[in-house]
Design a protein around this nucleic acid. Structure first.
Lengths: 241, 241
DNA sequence: TCTACGATAGAACGACGTTCGATAAATGTG
DNA sequence: CACATTTATCGAACGTCGTTCTATCGTAGA
């Protein structure tokens, strides 16, 4: 009932007495937990322990775990945005789109939880919005209608986030342990697929060798390329190759 | 330690004494809960109550909640597969791909939890695998390498699942209550975006009218079209338009 | 009848997100 | 200076969840 109306200012950390906290410190600690031990490790209790405070204190900076994730996502996306803004503009807006998409993709593969919260609450996620804007600005260089631009950026973001989220889901506890390598993990499926009836599963047999030992990133790049090729066509730009 | 080695046969429900259970009954009840009250309503306790049994009994059919979701997903995907198999083959494999993708998309929009579990464990999800196969068979009609086929289907599934998952995430509790319509929900963001500095956010201003009141499905269809156009180009088929 | 197994049931455990009231330090006000 | 208000902290307590454990019952085979 007594949700705090004022929050600590973002800029300077004000006078501190016990532990030196702030929204930023909370977010940094949260991201640290996520990086070091995965999503299951982010707990209000663990977070409080890392910060040296009580659980209740965290709720002064953040109203819920969802908001914690929202803000942590935007916190991390700040670095991604900086990278993207550092990317030089080339002659081809579509090349630039690809570069930005790959940058975002890499960030999400590193931290799969980003996929769930990216662009979910632009009130809180200023960096998400700016990233979206940056992508969109490249479409302004193409001969498209506003609607086509909107859909193009949505599609690219969808490919990036969707693929990264799919690939980022941790395998059933065995790959992380190192007891079973990723190749072996893929190989098991490949073996099972090869054992299927070829008459009934001609496609699976056709691609099982590609699947076995494939690189996630290649899969993403190929999918992105299809979208970009479609976009290039839509914009009336002659295909590069 | 004493994980059951035998499971009840799928086909006929064997002799029953108290309540007439089976894996199928559990899955049907689980899907019922999900349909009626959303993901948060699927609880082992709620499920047991609906089945008229105890919580412990469910664990005889299913080893964990993840497996419950895996199997429930495949259970539902059976109907999707049947629909897809009923779709007639046209002259254009890409048109057929679109039809299948749209069918899958609609199913996931209805039940967003499908996105998380689709094709996650093909040992258990036979229907998922068959759906994947069905999509892939269309690519066999195109002039592509195995690798291109693999990537094409991955890309299409990625677009479908990614977009549907993104759109399926329930808005912050207000739209479902009906107190705030979806249009009003979109409108709020649109208003906030219009208030941004036009110099700093030219793209957001360009597309805000498209965003305001847009239809999710159009967004998906447009994204899918880009991928399909790219695929058509890759296969050397002259663009339809 | 005894034994083994298929199947059920619910209490108990530990972990989690969240709420709450009791503070204490900092700041403002006369 | 005194004193009220705001800002901030803390940890116990609540309710819910997934999961485990043990006891039990019905059935079928020996």
């Amino acid at each position: 009932m007594t949700r705090p109306r004022t929050r600590p200012a973002d800029r300077p950390s004000p006078g501190r007495h016990r532990a030196s906290h702030s929204l930023e410190a909370v977010l940094t600690a949260a991201v640290g937990l996520l990086d070091e031990a995965g999503e299951s490790a982010l707990t209000f209790r663990a977070l409080a322990a890392r910060l040296g405070t009580g659980v209740g204190s965290i709720y002064w900076y953040v109203a819920s775990k969802d908001e914690l994730y929202d803000r942590a996502t935007d916190h991390v996306l700040g670095a991604v945005l900086a990278t993207v803004e550092g990317l030089p503009d080339s002659d081809d807006p579509i090349d630039d789109l690809r570069g930005m998409a790959v940058t975002l993709f890499d960030a999400i593969v590193d931290r799969p939880w980003l996929a769930t919260y990216f662009m979910r609450n632009t009130d809180v996620q200023e960096n998400s919005l700016r990233l979206y804007e940056k992508l969109g600005q490249q479409t302004l260089r193409l001969d498209l209608t506003p609607r086509q631009r909107f859909h193009a950026v949505s599609a690219i973001v969808g490919v990036v986030v969707g693929t990264a989220a799919d690939l980022g889901q941790e395998p059933p506890e065995e790959v992380l342990d190192g007891t079973v390598g990723r190749d072996e993990f893929l190989g098991r499926y490949a073996r099972a697929w090869r054992a299927l009836d070829p008459e009934e599963f001609p496609f699976v047999h056709e691609i099982v060798d590609e699947f076995d030992g494939h690189e996630d990133k290649d899969q993403f790049l190929a999918g992105l390329e299809l979208t970009l090729a479609g976009l290039r066509l839509q914009a009336g730009v002659p295909p590069a190759l």
